[in-house]
Amino acid sequence: MPGPRLILLCGLPGSGKTTLARRLATDLPAVRLCPDEWLTNLGIHLYDEKARDLLERQLWRHAQDLLRLGQTVILEYGFWARSERDELRLAARALGAAVELRYLEAPVEELWRRLRDRNGTPGTAPISRDSLERWVPLFEAPDEAELALYDPA
């Protein structure tokens, strides 16, 4: 039986993280932790940054417990910053877990098409083209050297 594994899904909104996470959760199987779904189910606004931060920290504690039990865990946070990815990679490795980084990317026009199509869908926050354009330069895409730090899928 394989040991514990953490899968980090990295990408901008509309890149396909949720679609991939759902498929992996079934195929592997794995426990999928998605802050957007938790916030929605708890009746908390998706852009409540304080609540999101608290929830993501709690989900990370839960993920660590699951890893200690030998489970595979998918974190669907987006992981825009390299420092976030490094922190969780090192912490999971300290628990004896393998760590994958699945980087999903798409051109801005494709991201916008997907976001426009899903805007208004229950459980999703509407995202404007302006917001997407502001976020693109903030996103720290992993380079080949960073990707080499992770275990293969």
Rank of each mutant, 00 (worst) to 15 (best):
R129M: 09
E109M: 02
L138N: 11
W38A: 14
N41M: 08
R113L: 13
C34H: 05
R61V: 00
Y103C: 13
T40D: 12
A81G: 01
D48P: 12
R52V: 04
Y103V: 10
E110C: 08
L95R: 01
R68F: 00
R22V: 06
R32M: 02
F79H: 11
E76C: 10
P107W: 10
E109T: 15
R57E: 12
L115W: 06
F79P: 02
A98T: 14
E56D: 08
D27W: 00
A125W: 12
T40Q: 01
E133C: 11
E49M: 05
E109R: 13
T18C: 06
G78P: 13
A92W: 07
Q71M: 11
G14C: 07
R118M: 09
T18F: 09
A63S: 13
F139R: 12
W38P: 00
Q58C: 07
G78K: 08
R32K: 04
E84I: 04
T26S: 12
D130I: 14
D65T: 15
L28V: 09
R57D: 12
E133K: 05
L46S: 13
L39C: 02
K17N: 05
A51F: 00
E109I: 07
V73T: 09
E110T: 15
N119H: 12
L28R: 14
F79E: 05
V136I: 15
A94I: 02
L66F: 02
R23E: 12
G70V: 07
L46V: 02
D48F: 03
C34S: 15
L132C: 10
R113P: 02
Q71I: 00
A21G: 14
N119Y: 11
D53T: 15
Q71H: 14
S83Y: 05
R93C: 02
I44Y: 00
T18M: 05
L132S: 08
A94N: 11
L33N: 02
E49P: 00
L115H: 08
G43I: 04
K50N: 05
Y47E: 14
R82N: 02
W60Q: 12
L55Q: 05
R89Q: 10
A106I: 13
P107Y: 08
W80P: 04
G123Y: 01
L95I: 03
P35C: 06
A92G: 09
A21K: 04
T18Q: 03
L67Y: 03
E84Q: 15
R113W: 12
R85C: 04
L59C: 03
L28N: 00
W80M: 10
V31P: 01
A81D: 11
R129N: 03
S83I: 14
T72G: 01
L101V: 07
G43D: 09
E105I: 00
R93I: 03
F79L: 11
W38D: 06
L55P: 00
E56H: 01
P137R: 13
A98N: 04
A92E: 06
A21H: 03
T124G: 07
R113Y: 10
